[in-house]
Computed example of a mutant assay.
Amino acid sequence: MLSVRNVLIGLAVAFTAYLGVRGLLGLGSVESPLIIIATLAVYVAGTWVCLLVQRPGEARSARVEQPVHATPASRLPLGAAIAALFVAAVVPTGIALGVGESVRAEPFATWYIGGIGALMTIVMVRRRPWFAWAGMVLLTAACSAWIGLLLALALGLVGSLMWVTAAQLLVYAIDRAVSDTERLAELQQAASAWQASQAGRQRERRVQVQRALALAGPVLTRVVRSGGHLDEEGRASARLAEGRLRDELRGPRLLDDDVRAALEAARRRGATVTMLDEGGLDDLDADALRVIRAELADTIRGSTSRRLYIRTAPHDSVAVTVVGREEATGTLSDDDSVDLWREIPRPNAAAPER
């Protein structure tokens, strides 16, 4: 499959092959051609190993097409990195011994300066910086020993050092870009989730407003038409509408048709009902809420209290607490006035009824 990675590998293979061919140009004027050929074979084999070898897991995942920014160059296996150091130590010495002392400074005899520099650039790109710089140290030492440091710098050692340095800076920049891209993707996902939650809350608020208008609209219309003068039936309807509106705003997750009917029946008999949802039900699914609402409706229908307090709160075992009091005044700490205490358990949790 043609990809950016395969194209770059192909170019690198062609370039290293070109450097190796340069070493064959003066084969007829060297002392030991066999040593030159063997050294070139070691160089080409070591370079192509560093280019092509992958870890087993990376080789399998490479078959799956991924975005370019998500697939930086894989880390070179340790064995291949050690092989690259072996090449950096052997090739300069092998070439110097093979060509002979008289022609060691000729272009066909100093190709290894650029060749080893290219190899260490590959090692650097494959994320083995310590091995890459160790290879450059070996190359510098070999050049100093065989042709002299100053001559080696003039013949390309500076360029090789610059290649490796540029490769390290490029790898650092790519890693930063990948990190920033991943961070940006995370922020974008968080922003999308926040927008979705806000859109859901806006829809929920619109539904609540529409329900509130449906509940309070007729009563408000009668109040406006009568100029604020209501009879007993109108006042009772207004109180019921106010109670329904408070229920919709304070505890919408507790409500269904049965619960609404039970609440209205309790208010019609004169009870004062206070409902407050303080959380704890958000993680429950529809089936669990259906069970809780059914038990809540039964509890309200069976109560005779003058004042009912219905409250939810985050709790490990209790979903809803219903407290009924005989009198409409007094403090909740007065146990003598409490005639109903019902704890509706969360699904798969038991709570005692008192």
Rank of each mutant, 00 (worst) to 15 (best):
R225I: 14
V44S: 06
S337Y: 05
L76P: 01
D283R: 10
G251D: 02
E186I: 08
P129R: 06
P218D: 05
G79V: 12
G10R: 08
A262G: 03
S29Y: 10
G117I: 06
A70F: 09
V125A: 15
R75H: 09
M120E: 05
V323W: 03
S32L: 15
L34N: 09
A141F: 10
V219F: 11
A199H: 10
I82P: 06
A319R: 08
G324P: 09
A62G: 06
L284H: 00
G228A: 03
A59G: 07
A350I: 14
S160F: 10
L296V: 00
E278C: 15
R290F: 06
F131E: 02
E232F: 03
N348F: 14
A84H: 02
E343G: 06
G148I: 06
Q195V: 15
R225F: 11
A351E: 05
L139R: 01
W146Y: 12
R225L: 15
G23H: 08
V207S: 11
S61N: 08
H69Q: 13
F86P: 00
R301Q: 09
P252I: 04
E58M: 12
L276D: 08
S74P: 04
T93F: 09
V223E: 02
Q54H: 09
G23E: 05
A14C: 13
V223Y: 01
V53I: 15
V103F: 02
Y18K: 10
W130I: 14
G280I: 07
Y309S: 09
A88Q: 03
A73H: 14
L76Q: 01
A185P: 00
V273W: 02
P345S: 08
L139K: 00
S32C: 02
A177C: 07
G148S: 02
L230W: 04
A134T: 14
L52R: 04
L340H: 07
Y18D: 11
E101Q: 11
A266S: 12
V318G: 03
M1A: 13
D339P: 07
W146E: 08
P72I: 03
V21W: 13
V338Y: 01
A199P: 00
S179A: 15
A154F: 01
A238Y: 05
W341E: 06
S192I: 09
C143L: 07
R268T: 13
W163L: 15
E327N: 13
S29H: 09
Q202N: 10
E186D: 08
G79Y: 15
